Computed example of a mutant assay.
Amino acid sequence: MVSCILALGSNLGERAGTLQAAVTALAATAGITVERVSDTAVTKPVGGPAGQPDFLNLVLRVTTTLAPLELLAACQEIEAAHHRTREVRWGPRTLDIDVITYGDETSEDPVLTLPHPRAAERGFVLLPWSWMEPEAELAGKPVAELAAAASDTPGIKRAEAGA
């Protein structure tokens, strides 16, 4: 079993329900066990076209027997089941699931770079992760410190129950 961090986000449709359904789908996937789920964050879009709705984001720790590309494929199948389309880079989406870490593995594979190449600067990943695991590290640096330094962190807040 390999311990991994996944980041989920949604800014279209029934965002909270979509995130919960994605967590449930991941937990039901053979070879994946959901270990921890962060609180949900309300975040402004980072990059992409202007005028997008706010995102709901959360982070999961999972353990898996799947190989890295198999885990990515499972995540993409769940995205597709929630009508995810990839028309505009960083555009609005019903569901996004990113593989942030896969154990201690590093990879420059353009299909799945590990750890995620922009995770260390994304407050919408780092802050929920630090809520879930205050002592977590990414590439040897405390996630809470990386979150504090991320440019988008000041606008992030915890979602109200049922948001």
Rank of each mutant, 00 (worst) to 15 (best):
T43N: 12
W131D: 05
K141A: 09
A22N: 09
V143P: 04
L114P: 08
L8F: 06
F124E: 06
L6N: 04
A50G: 12
E108A: 13
H83N: 13
L58W: 03
P142S: 06
A80R: 14
T94K: 03
A136C: 08
A81N: 05
V46Q: 08
R84Q: 11
I97R: 13
S3E: 03
P115N: 04
M1C: 01
V2N: 07
T94N: 09
S107C: 05
A50D: 14
L95G: 11
L114I: 06
V88E: 12
E70R: 10
A136F: 07
A120D: 01
S107K: 04
M1Y: 10
T94G: 10
Q52K: 11
L126Q: 01
T106H: 10
G31W: 05
R15Q: 13
T94C: 07
A139R: 04
T63I: 01
V42Q: 09
A21Y: 03
A139T: 00
T29I: 03
A136G: 11
T65E: 14
T85Y: 00
L146Q: 06
E133K: 05
L58V: 01
V46I: 03
P142F: 06
G31H: 09
L8Q: 05
G123R: 03
I97M: 13
V125G: 11
C75P: 05
V125Q: 09
T113S: 11
A67M: 05
N57I: 01
L112F: 09
A73P: 00
Q52G: 15
T43S: 15
E79R: 08
E135C: 05
V34H: 11
A144H: 13
S10W: 04
I78T: 09
I32G: 09
H82F: 07
Y102E: 02
L138R: 03
T94S: 13
L71S: 10
D98N: 09
V143M: 07
L56E: 02
G48F: 07
R93N: 07
H82T: 00
S3Q: 05
F124V: 05
V42D: 03
H116W: 02
C4Q: 00
T63A: 14
R84F: 11
Q20M: 07
P68W: 07
E145H: 09
L56D: 03
A139K: 02
L146Y: 12
R15C: 14
G13D: 00
A80N: 07
P115V: 01
A139I: 00
L127C: 14
W131C: 12
R61I: 03
D98L: 07
R86D: 13
D39G: 13
I100Y: 08
T65S: 15
E79P: 05
R36N: 07
R89L: 14
E121M: 05
F124A: 14
V125I: 15
V143L: 08
V88S: 09
E133G: 02
A73D: 08
E70C: 10
T63W: 06
V2S: 10
L69F: 08
L72C: 12
R84I: 04
L60V: 03
V46W: 11
A16G: 11
G13I: 00
A41Y: 15
V23I: 15
L114D: 04
L127K: 15
E70V: 02
F55S: 07
M132W: 10
T65F: 06
T24V: 10
E121F: 00
C75F: 14
L8M: 11
L66V: 04
P49T: 03
S3K: 08
